[in-house]
Design a protein around this nucleic acid. Structure first.
Length: 820
RNA sequence: GCUCCAGUGGCGGAAUAGGUAGACGCGUUGGACUUAAAAUCCAAUUAGGCUCACCCCUAGUGCCAGUUCAAGUCUGGCCUGGAGCACCA
């Protein structure tokens, strides 16, 4: 009697399976286990409403890894959660009058259903949702730990401002002068804001990148660029007109100090008013006003012609006593180095352009150029007094040493990385747990008063200020120290704060007394395999590394890097371009589940490209995967009554039997290796197909089927497929009478010897070109192989009348005869 | 400008440690089954040449050199595309 239908109808069993998996919590992870731990993690989603194909790709990859590791005897932690604070919820509130919390909950519920429908083996008992009080309580607590240890501070400074989002942004969130979220131009505003001292960790964040062998070079390079270390010198220049005033300058080219002809300060330079002479005051003020009006995009444009204005004052070059004018120019940036630049027109392109435009002096101090154009290559010092004749690379340190002796300079390492601006003037985020008291000043909210909850009585329609300020209940409070009336901090935290520690929370997600237990976090972390999009190469991945290092220094953790291995998956494209609603080329996962089932979606999203590369979605490809699964299904349906779950391979096998047994071992070996080696799922799936083709080949001769041999192949295929086609394999396993879930079975062992044929094809080459082939045993003697090669029918003519110079024999591969 | 990655048929992509280039799939073409279609199965599919049937020959992994018995793979120099950084002093 047939139990398995003859045709593959995933719709008939996939959803039922989901229900029972969720109900029975078969993927629950326990902390106490003798097995070694393995932590597989996907970057958690923002609950925007519906899954997109990028999610499907991301989570399928991680899920297959989790299942593979589970079958290989690991105690696997594979959690999921929601990066659920952030502007979209607030915008929904503004546009539709929805409560951000309700809007978010609704989205989470729907997307959770989709994740289950996709067949993810997630332990939902560890779900973390960043916008829930039981989570953001600990985000706030962690902020306070950083604050109490001097790693969080508030300061007034020019910051990035997005008019459209009505909030400040971190440097990492400004892409080409535009807001990362809404693409509108970013301007500078002078505001008092909260920062985290990520710059304290610049050096170690950079150095430790070398330890991250499991990260791709692309991500590491991006982080290196972003941290931007440069070695150089800090030099101090006395101002001629003002006694006691010095301008410090950072330079990477101390070898060119004798070529300085002027000095530039940024328009926002703090001392600029002091440095302006009375007769230049008007012009300078005008210039600064104009500079302010420029947007970041305009200002940062390298094509723009540099502008500036002289301040009327001068510096004295301490090396040669030369008096040089001070200019304000917007090619100097306030927050890099000291905001002031020494200008050497002959050896710096920017200075050269500027000096040419404003007719400033140019002095050659490095030989090698033509004396007319700017020369930035290496050379020998000239016009540099006692340093003349020295190679410029050598002069760099010599000159700084000299400056150090004389007391006007020193070596200096400068980083491009700025402190992380974490306060936001928005509602839907974790409130910063600080109270301002007139008497006591800035007071942290005591742990016992956490969480500081978001108010409900807010008006989202306000313009120009944070909605949180419309609450009648939030801002006014009492001072935790003296009890006097006080004001709350009304800014909330950047959502990247919440996502900088969620992977720690999963280790102990239901803890109500702590953010996480140290023992548990040390047991599970670091993450063994992290999977996510390249767009977080800097933002999330850098912040999380910083958090981990900071929390380790606070004694909360014992490890200093959060993610041991990182896989950055490529984008999902359709017709060659990124899927997007505006282009109308999106594919709805629900529709794929409905029409083909989740197994087809999983199989396809892993099939065509290696995970790190972009993946081009095609309807034909989906169809092809569905057909493949149907083809596999028919095998089991046809032989369901003959399949033995524990087959015994007999001793005396015929050639076909032997071949199928060997192909089975080859499949186990190749699939195992390809998963272990960089998760090359595309070749894993090729092998599924090849193996299936082999099985079809075997059953062609219906009268000569050995059911032990066939069962061995079919049961192996089922297990090999189980991490990918999770529903189908479970359905078949159950119907064949397998014990428990197929997902709890042990992975297959392979025997390299059994995966090897006794006979192989040897290629015969003449001077490296293939001319003939022959079959021979793997262990055949070298001389015998040469003899066989020489006597090949098509080889003989090539040897006729030629001298054999050399013969190379490569075991199991080829014989190459070199003739003259 | 600096840094990183990639370039292989009509397409996505294979090719342990240098050893039969084009696995597997998509597409296309032809065939079987069928009244017909769908589904399924079988075959062909880098280009050019040949007594284009069997064989066989030549060229071929962005370009130019080099190392080697042998190069998609290694070395040097380019070209193209993508990504990141960038008036960073």
């Amino acid at each position: 009697m047939s139990i398995l239908k003859s045709e593959y109808y995933p719709q008939e069993f996939e959803e039922k399976r989901v229900e029972s998996w969720v109900k029975n919590k078969i993927f629950k992870t326990f902390d106490d286990s003798d097995k070694p731990k393995y932590y597989a993690l996907s970057m958690f989603p923002y609950p925007s409403g519906k899954l997109h194909m990028g999610h499907v790709r991301n989570y399928t990859i991680t899920d297959v890894i989790a299942r593979f590791k589970r079958m290989n005897g690991f105690n696997v932690l594979h959690p999921m959660g929601w990066d659920s604070f952030g502007l979209p919820a607030e915008n929904a509130a503004i546009e539709r009058g929805a409560d951000p919390a309700e809007w978010t909950d609704k989205n989470i519920a729907y997307m959770k259903g989709q994740l289950n429908r996709l067949g993810l083996s997630v332990d939902w008992d560890r779900e973390a949702t960043t916008c829930k009080k039981d989570y953001y309580k600990w985000t706030q607590w962690l902020f306070l730990q950083l604050y109490k240890n001097g790693l969080a501070y508030k300061k007034m400074s020019p910051v990035n401002w997005c008019e459209n989002c009505a909030t400040v942004l971190a440097n990492e969130q400004v892409i080409d002068g535009k807001c990362w979220r809404c693409d509108s131009p970013v301007t500078k505003k002078n505001l008092s804001q909260w920062f985290l001292k990520i710059t304290d960790y610049a050096e170690v964040l950079l150095e430790d990148l070398d330890k991250l062998e499991g990260w791709g070079d692309n991500v590491k390079t991006m982080q290196r660029n972003w941290i931007g270390k440069s070695k150089g010198a800090m030099l101090k220049f006395k101002v001629k007109e003002i006694e006691g005033l010095e301008i410090p300058v950072f330079t990477t080219r101390p070898d060119t100090v004798y070529g300085i002809t002027y000095l530039v300060v940024a328009p926002e330079y703090p001392d600029i008013e002091k440095l302006t002479s009375p007769e230049n005051k008007k012009a300078v003020e005008e210039y600064r006003e104009n500079a302010k009006k420029l947007s970041e995009i305009e200002r940062l444009s390298t094509e723009r012609i540099k502008t500036g204005v002289p301040l009327g004052t001068h510096i004295i070059n301490p090396f040669n006593g030369r008096v040089c004018p001070i200019w304000a120019a917007d090619y100097a940036i306030l927050d890099y180095g000291t905001g002031a630049v020494m200008a050497v027109p002959m050896h710096d392109e920017r200075d050269f352009d500027f000096a040419t435009k404003y007719n400033l002096d140019k002095i050659t101090v490095i030989s090698g150029g033509d004396g007319k154009n700017c020369y930035t290559e290496p050379g020998v010092l000239v016009n540099s007094e006692q340093f003349n004749g020295m190679k410029n690379e050598e002069a760099k340190s010599k000159i700084v040493e000299y400056a150090k002796e004389q007391g006007f300079g020193d070596f200096k390492t400068q980083f491009r990385l700025r402190d992380w601006l974490i306060s936001r003037q928005r509602y839907w985020g974790a409130p910063i747990p600080i109270v301002y008291c007139e008497k006591c000043g800035m007071v942290p909210v005591p742990d016992s008063d956490l969480p500081v909850c978001l108010p409900k009585d807010v008006d989202f329609s306000v313009k120009g200020k944070s909605p949180i300020l419309t609450s009648k209940t939030f801002e006014d409070t009492t001072c935790p120290v003296c009890g006097a009336p006080a004001k709350r901090e009304c800014d909330t935290m950047d959502t990247f704060m919440c996502s900088s520690w969620y992977y720690l929370r999963y280790s102990d997600a239901r803890n109500t007394n702590k953010a996480f237990d140290k023992k548990l976090v040390d047991k599970w972390l670091p993450v063994d395999q992290y999977v996510g999009g390249i767009e977080h190469a800097i933002l999330h991945l850098l912040y999380s590394r910083f958090f981990t290092k900071a929390l380790k220094n606070l004694g909360l953790l014992s490890f200093d890097e959060p993610f041991k291995n990182l896989l950055t998956q490529g984008m999902v494209l359709k017709d060659g371009s990124k899927m997007s609603k505006s282009k109308g080329n999106t594919v709805d996962p629900d529709e794929i589940f409905r029409n083909y089932g989740a197994d087809t979606a999983r199989l396809f999203i892993l099939s065509d490209s290696p995970p790190a590369r972009d993946f081009d979605w095609s309807d034909a490809g989906v169809e092809g995967c569905y057909k493949f699964l149907s083809r596999v299904w028919r095998l089991y349906s046809k032989y369901q009554d003959n399949i033995k779950l524990e087959p015994q391979i007999p001793q005396n096998l015929n050639k076909n039997d032997e071949k199928l047994v060997r192909e089975t071992y080859i499949s186990i070996q190749k699939i195992t290796n390809d998963i272990e080696n960089e998760f090359q799922f595309n070749t894993v799936i090729s092998r599924y197909r090849e193996f299936t083709n082999e099985i079809y080949d075997y059953i062609k001769d219906e009268n000569n089927i050995n059911y032990d041999v066939l069962s061995f192949a079919l049961v192996s295929l089922l297990k090999l497929l189980s991490p990918v086609a999770v529903f189908m394999t479970e359905e078949i396993w159950e119907k064949l009478g397998g014990k428990g879930s197929i997902h709890e079975q042990a992975w297959l062992k392979f025997d390299e010897k059994k995966a090897q044929a006794s006979e192989v094809t040897f290629v015969v080459q003449i001077n490296g070109k293939v001319r003939d082939k022959f079959e021979a045993g793997v262990d055949e003697d070298k001389e015998a192989l040469i003899e066989r090669a020489k006597n090949c029918e098509r080889i003989i003519p090539y040897l006729d009348g030629k001298e054999i110079v050399k013969i190379i024999v490569v075991p199991k591969k080829l014989v190459n005869i070199v003739v003259k």
